[in-house]
Computed example of a mutant assay.
Amino acid sequence: MSVRIAGRPIGSGHPVYVIAEIGLNHNGDVGIAKELIDVAAAAGADAVKFQKRTPELATPAHMRDVARDTPWGTMTYLEYRHRVELDREQYIEIGDHATLRGLDWFASPWDEPSVAFLEDLGVVAHKVASASVTDLPLLRAIGATGKPVILSTGMSTLEQIDAAIEALDARGRLILLHATSTYPMPADEANLRVVPALAARYPGVPVGYSGHERGLQISLAAAALGATVIERHITLDRTMWGSDQAASLEPQGLEHLVRDVRIIEQALGDGVKRVQPGELAPMRKLRRVPA
C-alpha cells in the first residue's frame, strides 16, 4: 500500500521520498531558509520540512525562563523561541520558493494553533515530531485535517505509537518513521532493525527513517533495509549556531545521500533470481558444463 503526498506515491516499490529537514536551522532568517531550500533542490530531494510553534503553548513551562546564550545575546528560552519563529508572510515566501524549486514543503506543528496556521497555508502533509507522539489532542487535530501524516517515533514505546496511531485516525494516510532522538546519534543507538519490525507490526503502513547521526552510512543502511522515506536535517555549515546543526548534513553530504539512495534503489531489484544480461558473456566464457 502506498500513501500519496502531492501526487507522489510513497511506499514499497516506489522511489524513496527524501525529506530535507530545515527545521530551525534557518535561525529565524528567511534568506538562510531560502538558501537551504536551494540546497535541497540542487541535491534532488523531494521535500523540505520546517517546524512551527506557538511559543507560549509549545514551550514546556519548566523551560520558559531558562537563560540561553544566543547570537542575539542572552535571553530566556521562551524569548529565543520567539526569535527564531517565522510569521505568516515569511512562511508564504519560503513556501512559494520551495514550490518554485519543485519541492513539496510542510512542517511539524507543535500545537493546535500551528495546525490551523499550516492548514491556512495549504501544506501538502503534516509531520508529527517525536516529541509530540504522546500529545493526543494535537494528534487528533492533525488527523482531522485529512492530510497525509508522517509520524516520527523517537523516544517512544510501541504502546505509545499504538495510541498515537489511534488518535490520528489516519488510515491510508499514515507514514511511520523510525527515529532515535539523540543529537548527534551514535551508531549503537540506531537500532535499524526496527524499520522492518515496524513494517511487520503495521502492515500496509509505509515505514521510513529519520536520522540524527553524523555521516551517511546509517541512513543508507536504512534505505537498504526497505525504508520508504529518508529524512535528514540539513545546514549550510555544521559549525553554525543552533542545537540541530551538528547532526545535520551540509550541501555536499545531502547531494551524496540522494545520489547513493537512488543507486541503492536500483541495486535492490525485485528479489527474483535470474541470469542478468551482463552475465551472459562471462557465462559463455567461463562455464565448462553448459546447463
Rank of each mutant, 00 (worst) to 15 (best):
V133M: 01
Q276A: 11
W105M: 03
D69T: 14
T134S: 14
E231A: 05
M63G: 00
L136N: 04
W110K: 04
K34D: 02
M75A: 12
I150T: 00
P184W: 04
A224M: 12
P186H: 08
T74K: 15
E79Q: 15
R171E: 11
I37G: 02
A222C: 03
L100S: 14
G204I: 01
A98K: 13
Y77P: 03
A167Q: 10
R4L: 14
A129C: 12
Y80L: 14
V18S: 06
E250S: 11
P251R: 12
L158W: 13
I234T: 08
R4E: 15
L249F: 06
V195G: 04
Q245K: 13
I10M: 10
G215L: 11
R287S: 10
D38K: 06
E255A: 14
A163E: 12
M155K: 13
S181I: 00
V115Q: 12
G102Q: 01
G23K: 10
I264H: 04
R4M: 14
G23M: 00
L136M: 13
A170E: 09
A98Q: 05
K273D: 02
G172P: 10
T153W: 01
S108Q: 06
T153N: 00
H14S: 11
G146D: 08
H14G: 02
N27W: 09
L24T: 14
E159W: 04
I165Q: 09
Y202V: 03
S152R: 00
I230M: 12
D104C: 05
R287C: 14
P137V: 03
T157L: 01
L138Q: 11
